[in-house]
Amino acid sequence: MPEALVFYHSTFDLAALAPVRRAVASWLSRTGMSRDRADDITLAVAEMLGNAVEHGGGGGTVHLSLADRCVRCVISDVGPGLPDRVDRHRASRPGPTAVGGRGLWLAFALCTAVRLSSSALGTRVELIVDV
């Protein structure tokens, strides 16, 4: 298996969300995926970044790499971890009147695979997308 090419790594907080989102979009546009697909994945990444800021201690790190025509985005935070009620293997679509809860659902819907790990030391979300 070839070594992954790391294209982007950054810390982020609320103030850095927009610049990080733009950097992710720019990088994805160079992977060979369609613009619509890159926009979808940028949305999924942005939702996970927002979740880390809102629920995961105010920020974290994001790491993007490409190997074997597969984009891997890992977002980590140091928050309190996911509540037990969160299904780490899938997410249900929230109802039309729900105020939040769309981030994980979008990630599962838009990405090839989503891997979640969480403990009292933080949460790690891995988004995997076939190019």
Rank of each mutant, 00 (worst) to 15 (best):
M1T: 14
M1E: 08
A4S: 01
L5C: 14
Y8T: 11
Y8S: 09
H9C: 00
S10A: 07
S10D: 06
L17T: 02
A18W: 00
V20H: 05
V20R: 04
R21E: 11
R21Y: 10
R21N: 12
R22A: 11
A23P: 09
V24C: 15
S26V: 13
S26L: 11
L28G: 00
L28N: 02
R30Q: 14
G32W: 09
D36W: 03
D36P: 13
D39C: 13
D40W: 11
I41W: 12
I41Q: 13
I41K: 12
L43V: 13
A44W: 05
A44E: 10
V45N: 05
A46M: 14
A46F: 15
E47Y: 01
E47A: 07
M48L: 04
M48Q: 07
L49G: 04
G50V: 02
N51T: 03
A52C: 08
E54C: 15
E54T: 13
G56S: 09
G56Q: 06
G58T: 08
G58D: 11
G58Q: 12
G60Y: 05
G60P: 04
G60E: 09
H63T: 00
L64C: 07
L64T: 05
A67W: 03
R69E: 11
R69T: 14
C70I: 14
C70T: 15
C70R: 15
R72A: 10
R72Q: 11
C73P: 13
C73V: 04
C73Q: 07
I75W: 10
I75K: 06
I75G: 06
P80R: 03
G81Q: 05
D84R: 02
R85K: 11
V86S: 12
V86R: 06
R90C: 11
S92E: 10
S92Y: 03
P94C: 07
V99G: 03
G100D: 06
G100P: 02
G101N: 06
R102K: 04
L104V: 14
W105K: 07
L106N: 05
A107W: 15
A107N: 11
F108A: 08
T112R: 10
A113N: 06
L116V: 00
A120T: 15
G122I: 15
G122K: 06
G122T: 11
T123S: 03
R124G: 00
V125F: 14
V125N: 15
E126W: 09
L127E: 03
L127H: 03
I128R: 07
